[in-house]
Nucleic acid binder design. Structure first.
Lengths: 135, 135
DNA sequence: GGATACTTGACTAATTTAGTCGGGTATATA
DNA sequence: TATATACCCGACTAAATTAGTCAAGTATCC
């Protein structure tokens, strides 16, 4: 089990932003240099963060991105949602109450994975950006 | 984030075993049929479970595998360890106290992933096979 | 001796990941 | 108004991982 880099980089980049003046746009170029993340990869990530309203963009020179809320109000769970990385630990179709693998019953471990998902999401639900930079 | 099939199948197969007479060897063929998992894939999985002493094997006809402990004494964390799937959510080198990405300092989110790992492993630490089949 | 069932290593197709590439468009500032 | 800055966006790709299969055993029971 492993998180993908997009999610990790998203959290890193946002934590980076959160430690600066929240009113001044921060360019991806700067984040790229500070965090050693490719600029074009950051662009992909921020596109999603923007769609999900976690940041807003300021175009043009001296532009960049601004957090759209206070950092203590941005939960990590939102960030993962923005990147479609809401924890789905397995392949069972969770919505169909019967039939995981095309069979007629739930698979024997079905409820376990449901519980695990809840457990992990709860962790992200209880952490915000501000928590990260208080160190 | 997603668990791989090996770990999932391992848990399914062991849960399957746990719901039968614990003293009679159970063949992989039977598990394969009941759980719709390829026999040869199960063989790979059980090799690891055996090395880790979670099951023991009985060769020859009427042979199969037997749980080496009571099912209420087999924690899910052991199963994941057996398959080398101990949760490592990220790429940072956790052991080197300084330097995640070849840089001189810990990355900004380093401690977060440590905490997450603990959180997930705790979940598996507190679940055993018996818990799974009590439904 | 034959059937059953475990044992083991090597190989492979498909998918996913982690990016890169290249061409935009909008805006500030000189 | 020119130019540089910086966001915007779709398409592509190399590398790694996953999820298996294949083939050839060995041990034991009946």
């Amino acid at each position: 089990m492993r998180l993908n880099t997009k999610s990790r980089y998203a959290v890193m980049a946002l934590a980076d932003m959160a430690s600066f003046n929240p009113n001044k746009p921060i360019s991806l170029r700067d984040i790229s240099l500070r965090q050693s993340i490719s600029l074009q990869y950051l662009e992909q990530i921020f596109l999603k963060l923007k769609k999900y309203n976690i940041v807003r963009s300021v175009r043009g020179s001296n532009g960049g991105y601004v957090l759209s809320k206070n950092s203590n109000n941005i939960k990590l769970s939102e960030i993962f949602s923005a990147l479609n990385e809401n924890v789905k630990t397995i392949g069972c179709d969770k919505n169909s109450k019967k039939g995981c693998n095309g069979r007629s019953t739930k698979c024997i471990t079905h409820d376990l994975w449901d519980e695990l998902d809840l457990h992990i999401n709860a962790f992200f639900e209880n952490k915000n950006l501000e928590d990260l930079i208080r160190n």
